[in-house]
């Protein structure tokens, strides 16, 4: 980290609410012993209640590994992960199942077909997590309608299957499904990458509203523009390390790390950027050295 840790928004020094997610010195390795590769190096990250933190990373940066580690889908080889104060680093499957059943942490992936059962109607997908927790069906369906409204979908979709919806609609259903258990934390891994521009903007607007409504979000994406437009704080993941973090305005407006500078300098803007070519070439050389 090249910047001091950022103070969570709207918090006095004494009454800092405990973070919803606290990752400290996280290492993750993949592969058998001889061909073991390190995917994350000492990643530390803290997310306050109602805060939206964006993680920027490109292919191979370890961003999906970070999402999977936080969700208990890959084991940590060092460091710790606390969710809502509970140390989940050494949790076994059974403990993870219990945690997931409580619905404290939820997720949205790039491909909504991965988070929605293709054989369940939208209604069944949405109410299932509530039925498991003993909520009456009628009440659960009422809640499903409220959430569909929140993601700007008509409750006429309740009887449909995921395959009958457009990609943008499916992703909004996936967001509604993630919210139905009233989680403290939602991890979103590339939630808008597969969508066209209009659908992307719609999901991003919904995410902004969510942030304002009190749920903490970890928004992971390769797209600096999407993340910077939504997140309170942005962290840049490069080759398994968080190389820079700060407000979107600081990170985009005055990037410090060579990789962040390259990233900002590479994002196409409407102004055209022919003059930046030489600068990009320099930064690439710097990073390769």
């Amino acid at each position: 980290m090249t910047r001091p840790p950022h103070t969570p928004p709207a918090a006095g020094a004494e009454e800092n609410p405990p973070p919803v997610l606290e990752v400290t010195g996280l290492d993750v390795h993949y592969g058998p012993r001889r061909r073991r590769r390190q995917a994350l190096h000492g990643v530390s990250l803290s997310v306050a209640p109602a805060e939206t933190v964006g993680i920027i990373g490109e292919t191979g940066s370890g961003k999906s590994t970070l999402a999977r580690a936080v969700l208990g889908l890959v084991p940590a080889s060092a460091g710790s992960i606390l969710i809502d104060g509970e140390n989940v680093t050494a949790h076994r499957d059974r403990q993870w199942r219990a945690l997931r059943r409580r619905g404290v942490v939820q997720y949205v992936f790039q491909d909504p077909l991965r988070s929605l059962d293709p054989d369940l109607t939208i209604e069944d997908s949405l109410v299932e997590p509530l039925l498991v927790r003993g909520v009456a069906r009628q009440e659960a369906v009422g809640r499903a309608r409220t959430l569909l409204d929140r993601v700007r979908l008509s409750d006429g979709l309740l009887t449909r299957l995921p395959g009958e919806l457009s990609g943008g609609q499916r992703q909004r259903v996936a967001v509604a499904r993630a919210l139905i258990t009233e989680p403290r934390l939602v991890v979103l891994d590339e939630p808008v990458s597969a969508l066209d521009s209009a659908n992307r903007v719609q999901i991003l607007e919904i995410l902004k509203e969510l942030g304002a409504s009190g749920v903490a979000l970890v928004f992971i994406s390769h797209d600096l523009g999407s993340v910077a437009g939504v997140a309170d704080r942005v962290a840049v993941l490069y080759r398994g390390e968080l190389v820079e973090s700060g407000t979107a305005r600081d990170v985009v407006g005055s990037p410090r790390h060579a990789y962040t500078r390259l990233l900002v300098g590479s994002a196409p803007t409407l102004r055209g950027a022919r003059t930046d070519r030489a600068r990009r070439a320099e930064l690439r050389e710097l990073l390769d050295a």
Binding site: S197, A198, R200, V201, L204, L224, G225, S226, A228, G229, A248, R249, V252, G253, S254, V264, A267, T269, L270, R271
Partner: peptide, 18 residues
Amino acid sequence: LLIAEHEQYGLEKFLDLK
């Protein structure tokens, strides 16, 4: 519309601030 969609979630506004 294409320009507005791009600018809404593009980097231009941050770069302008700078």
